[in-house]
């Protein structure tokens, strides 16, 4: 794993943990379903997208904001890494 990937994941983790805290959820693992646990609501998704666009330097289209890319921290990381490698 490269340094770049590590830091991307750390950034995602930090963002999601902060969002989770505002919803009173403390136990956030990389495989927790952010949707089922209520950590991310409809506005949270778009805040996360803006965050990723700014901090990870990716462009995310509306069509890409779907469950399979945003279900868990692992999914988000995989999605961002794939985009960065293209």
């Amino acid at each position: 794993m490269t340094q770049q990937v590590q830091s991307t994941k750390e950034q995602i983790r930090e963002f999601v943990r902060e969002a989770a805290q505002r919803k009173g959820v403390t136990d956030v693992t990389d495989t927790l379903s952010l949707v089922q646990s209520g950590v991310i609501d409809s506005l949270g998704i778009f805040r996360l997208v803006s965050f990723l666009e700014e901090n990870c330097k990716v462009r995310i289209a509306d069509e890409e904001i779907v469950g399979e890319n945003f279900e868990t921290i692992d999914d988000i990381e995989r999605f961002v890494t794939t985009k960065l490698s293209k």
Partner: peptide, 10 residues
């Protein structure tokens, strides 16, 4: 279902 309500494109 709940997962669909979060993702407008879906």
């Amino acid at each position: 279902t709940e997962d669909l309500t979060l993702f407008p494109a879906s």
